[in-house]
């Protein structure tokens, strides 16, 4: 199994996530897509590490997972905050009081 296959698989996952990030209207939908991208990056770390035969990729992935989870927590907190003050579904393209 060539490494290129894994990398391209990760790239495809990343691109799908990117599509979601730029097309979803809801904040949570975007967050889900960001998770997809982060997942793709982790896959990339692990594949590279495996083909070099060291632990670096796995170590990095562990840190990346922790960072991503922290990020999700914060993101959800902010979504809830915005939901409370706007009293509506959080559709990000309707949240544009600040502009120009």
């Amino acid at each position: 199994m060539p490494l290129a296959a894994w990398v391209i698989l990760a790239a495809a996952l990343f691109s799908i996530g990117l599509y979601g990030v730029t097309s979803r209207r809801g904040a949570i939908g975007i967050l889900l897509s960001v998770e997809l991208m982060a997942n793709a990056v982790n896959l990339l770390f692990i594949s590279f590490g495996r083909y070099r035969g060291d632990h670096l990729g796995q170590v990095f992935t562990l840190f990346a997972v922790a960072l991503t989870v922290a990020e999700v927590v914060i993101g959800l907190a902010l979504v809830i905050l915005l939901h409370r003050v706007r009293r509506s579904d959080v559709r990000v393209d309707e949240v544009k009081e600040l502009h120009g």
Partner: peptide, 17 residues
Amino acid sequence: LRRLQSGNVRDYVFVVA
């Protein structure tokens, strides 16, 4: 140009990407 700054965060994300 100010119209480019639409206030829609999806545009911002799109531009970044």
